[in-house]
Design a protein around this nucleic acid. Structure first.
Length: 675
DNA sequence: CGACGGGACGC
DNA sequence: CGACGGGACGC
């Protein structure tokens, strides 16, 4: 789904909307992959490829190209359909490959077809995803999160909704037992690290699904267990303890200090082939992820937003509407104070953004399904109403949403497609789906023609904006905490260590400015948007901290050493070079350790007693628009909601500043680990 | 506290 | 039909 092929603001060739046929242009006979860069005549693509290959499963053995091709041509320019047959027997294998000229088309096909269309003679809906290795070939990376403590009744869709506020969720996979019962954990994929981090920061240890007594665990997934028979693979995960299913110590990563200190790790790409033409990456040239940050780079195939719930068979995600309620009430149930709705708020009110521009292809796709009759039949309005009516965390959400949002917008948002100024949160889902309801009654919710290029741009930008907001928010929290603790402790010798932080604070206005500006650009979706967009990378580099390392060394239950990054939440087997370097430097003044003690205790009471609350974006909203957010000094109190915004949920985590000086686990960390 | 999804062309 | 290096004892 989504952003697969990187970020080319190239409009899908005459994407006239849905169902509109594609006249199959002069098809190239090209049999298979890896062209020697036929970079002369064919559709130009700045990256190396001129096609995008999809794997299609659940193809009846009786299917023919004549059946398949037209179906796929509805969504793009099909270069080739290759039915796979057994070499000896000549029997069809029940799958095929479909080549599109662009990854945008491929994405569209995935969105529109995966699990949503059953071929004649087929038993289930076809599976549509990128062929093995295709995503890498196209330069896409993914960031996979492991999510634990999910409600076992929750569907992929509900999980997706929870994670959508932080970025386009490319895939959700729930672990199920033989009986197809969820095991309460699963995986969520994003295309960008920022999104993954934002989700971790916002959800891990904070958000509790209804019916659960534990908050979600959200962390980068361990590398996937290599399947027997996989030969190529698992680059750079040279850990000894591979089969060990240990949990990285789960202290919730502290709010993103990493943003300020180059979470873009220098050059450490061993084992990875750099993505083709990395230069065109949307957000400032991401480095390929390391194995510890994502699942193995192989098997990136299943990206399709595949939702085959238990109720399989059908196609239209919306038809599993019954489940929708779940999440809605999920985010707020028992002690309202304990259930937290992860909220990301934008700095702009939705009405500032022309809805038309918010309807990017994703949203479109979804609004189509969402507004389908199936959904319309959904009679959960009362419930929705209740849940949204309570608004345990209220916020400006309602006020902002109701006026500006027409049905369409609400719909597009409710799918978490991350549209521009959306208030994405399970909570807001309530509002949105509620808002969406009337529109269904009124009219079939006209679908606006997609404006691919600009709207995709807008999409990306808005996404980035969201991310930045998330970062900003958690950074604020981090800062405030840091500062408070600093005041409590004030070890003169440490002030220097914290220097970078204060440095960073100065950057905040700038940063906030960037966010807003980006938002504006996204709103207008003009082509000059790129120019005004400052990729995070740029920001990061400005703020690079001289010497710091967030990696700490730990030992797994199996006795293997591994390294945990308190900022990013990553864990990996290899010893980060940064750590070694830092340690050397720090061996000179080895006196800091004692100082560690006071903090943890201090903190832990604070943390343990703390009731996680919704993240009140109001804060961000206000501050981000102030010229000089001299922020974070005092806890702020928002009369509006009567909410205490300062020490936010992020505090669940270990916000021990000492972790930024030293590589020793804090007491909480251990406590957590041994919990 | 749960860890990875059917099938995978072709030289 | 091969598949990517760094190191090996400890709770």
């Amino acid at each position: 789904m989504g952003t697969a092929g990187g970020f080319r603001p190239i409009p899908g060739p005459g994407d006239g909307g849905f169902g509109s046929g594609f006249q199959p242009p002069p098809v190239v006979g090209q049999k298979r992959g890896y062209p020697f860069a036929g970079r002369g005549s064919s559709p130009d693509h700045s990256d190396g490829s001129n096609f995008a290959k999809l794997f299609v499963g659940s193809v009846p053995r009786t299917a023919t190209e004549e059946i398949i091709r037209p179906l796929f041509e509805e969504h793009g320019n099909v270069i080739e359909v290759a039915l796979i047959k057994d070499k000896r027997t000549g029997q069809q294998q029940g799958c095929c490959f479909v080549k599109y000229t662009t990854s945008e088309e491929a994405d569209r096909a995935i969105r529109n077809l995966h699990n949503q269309h059953t071929l004649p003679g087929g038993v289930g809906p076809i599976q549509v995803r990128y062929a093995d290795g295709e995503r890498e070939r196209l330069g896409a990376v993914e960031y996979k999160l492991f999510v634990g403590s999910l409600n076992k009744q929750a569907s992929e869709k509900e999980v997706k909704e929870i994670f959508s506020p932080y970025g386009v969720v490319e895939d959700v996979y729930l672990m199920r037992d033989e009986m197809k019962q969820s095991r309460g954990c699963g995986f969520v994929k994003y295309s960008h690290r920022d999104m993954a981090l934002a989700a971790i920061n916002a959800l891990n240890g904070i958000f509790t699904m209804r019916g659960c007594d534990q908050p979600l665990s959200v962390r980068f997934a361990d590398p996937k267990k290599p399947r027997p028979g996989d030969s190529r693979g698992t680059p750079a995960f040279g850990g000894p303890g591979f089969g060990s299913r240990f949990q990285p110590p789960g202290p919730r990563p502290t709010p993103n200090f990493g943003e300020f200190m180059g979470d873009r790790i220098p050059i450490d790409v061993r084992g990875f082939r750099p993505p083709i033409d990395a230069g065109i990456h949307p957000f400032g040239g991401q480095l390929p992820p390391r194995s510890s940050e994502m699942g193995l780079p192989l098997n990136l195939g299943g990206l399709a937003g595949g939702f085959r719930g238990p109720n399989q068979g059908l196609v239209n995600p919306a038809s599993s509407a019954s489940q929708q309620n779940f999440n809605q009430s999920a985010s707020q149930h028992p002690p309202p104070g304990l259930q937290v709705s992860p909220v990301l708020k934008t700095s702009q009110s939705p009405k500032q953004l022309p809805p038309s521009n918010q309807l990017h292809s994703h949203a479109l796709t979804y609004s189509q399904t969402q507004t389908s009759p199936a959904l319309a039949q959904q009679h959960n309005q009362p419930q929705n109403f209740n849940s949204s009516g309570q608004l345990p965390f209220s916020q400006p959400a309602p006020s902002q949403e109701s006026p500006g949002l027409g049905g369409q917008l609400a719909v597009s948002q409710s799918m978490g497609a991350s549209s521009a100024a959306a208030t994405h949160t399970p909570l807001s889902m309530n509002l949105q789906s509620h808002a969406a309801a009337p529109s269904q009654q009124q009219l079939p919710t006209p679908i606006q023609p997609p404006q691919n290029s600009p709207s995709q741009l807008a999409h990306m930008l808005s996404q980035q904006k969201q991310t930045l907001q998330a970062r900003f928010q958690s950074s604020q929290q981090a800062f405030s905490q840091l500062q408070q603790q600093l005041q409590l402790i004030q070890p003169p010798n440490q002030s220097s260590t914290l220097q970078p932080s204060s440095q960073t604070i100065k950057q905040q206005p700038h940063w906030a400015g960037v966010v807003t500006h980006t938002a504006a650009s996204a709103a207008s979706a003009t082509s000059d948007a790129h120019t005004s967009t400052v990729p995070p990378a740029a920001i990061n580099t400005q703020v690079v901290a001289p010497v710091k390392c967030n990696w700490t060394e730990h030992t797994s239950p199996d006795g293997y050493k591994y390294y945990y990054n308190s900022v990013t939440g990553e864990s990996k087997w290899e010893r980060p070079e940064e750590l070694s370097v830092i340690e050397q430097q720090q061996q000179k003044p080895p006196i800091l350790q004692p100082h560690n003690q006071p903090h943890p205790q201090l903190l832990s009471t604070q943390q343990l007693s703390q009731t996680p609350q919704a993240q009140l974006q109001t804060q961000f909203q206000t501050q981000s628009q102030m010229p000089h957010p001299q922020p974070l000094q005092q806890p702020s109190f928002h009369s509006q909601e009567g909410a205490y915004t300062q020490m936010q949920p992020a505090n669940n985590s270990i916000n021990d500043p000492t972790r930024f000086h030293q590589g020793f686990p804090t007491t909480q960390e251990w406590a957590w680990k041994n919990k």
